[in-house]
Write a protein that binds this DNA or RNA. Structure first.
Lengths: 138, 138
DNA sequence: GTAACTGCAAAATATTTGCATCCTT
DNA sequence: AAGGATGCAAATATTTTGCAGTTAC
């Protein structure tokens, strides 16, 4: 399936700018999740740090990308599935982070099991963060 | 069951100092997880920021506390069960973070479901991060 | 042309490091 | 007494904010 950068931006009422196109393209091309620093480096330091911060924030608000909770509390982002768009991330995710190489995968096709919590707790979202060794590191 | 602050420190070959005793006591008394800032405030700003950083790091290394992956990537810590001690956190956890009040709970008695990942992935740890409304906020 | 986006400077916040002093054992 | 722990100062890293100039539409 084709992912159209420009379409995605338009669909979310965002103007088409260089930084948005290139940063979104990085996500589309990337297999794993990206941290702020990854974007800074992989884009060849083409944009200001601040622009990257603001672009990521905008993308998160629009539901184009989402943040990933990681075991080491580093901030990483990954593309959302179409279902996410609109700023509501009600889909449940499984994320995998490799202990060796640090690559973070978004395992969208693995379903998150339903949990039953103690009385008085209501669930709005469930994230599963798995650590271990990935394909490449075996 | 009784949790002995001093015993825990001794068991881990740590010298018994004021900051360690008081910070560990905060964790024992606290129902939820604590962030660096919580400790700074709740301890009455009694210790230097740096001491708190170093103490938390020491406790994590010794397996007395562990960090919690949160949906908003804020760094929080919670007491480990006895099984954790020794620096190996091989137990799987369910953590709950309230969208309203931010309180983070360590739900040790809820078991983490086993997942099957794609070929080539090996699991060392599974964290489940649940968001929603807690008891107090309903 | 206008509103939105970007870059630069700077502020605010968070974390780490070095070193002299103090405390635990 | 000796080694480790703490406090302070400062370096470094991260994130946010304000504003003027630029760009998309």
């Amino acid at each position: 399936m084709m992912y159209s950068i420009v379409e995605t931006l338009k669909k979310n009422q965002l103007s088409i700018t260089d930084s948005r196109k290139k940063i979104l393209e990085l996500f589309v091309r990337s297999k794993g999740a990206l941290a702020h620093a990854d974007i800074e480096h992989e884009s060849g330091a083409e944009f200001d740090r601040v622009t990257i911060y603001r672009t990521l924030q905008t993308f998160v608000e629009k539901g184009i990308i989402h943040t990933i909770p990681t075991a080491d509390n580093s901030v990483r982002y990954a593309l959302c599935k179409d279902a996410c768009a609109g700023g509501h991330h009600h889909d449940d995710h499984v994320h995998f982070m490799c202990d060796d190489c640090g690559t973070t995968y978004c395992l969208d096709n693995i379903s998150v099991p339903k949990l039953s919590l103690p009385d008085g707790f209501t669930i709005s979202q469930t994230d599963v963060v798995v650590s271990g060794k990935c394909r490449k590191c075996h």
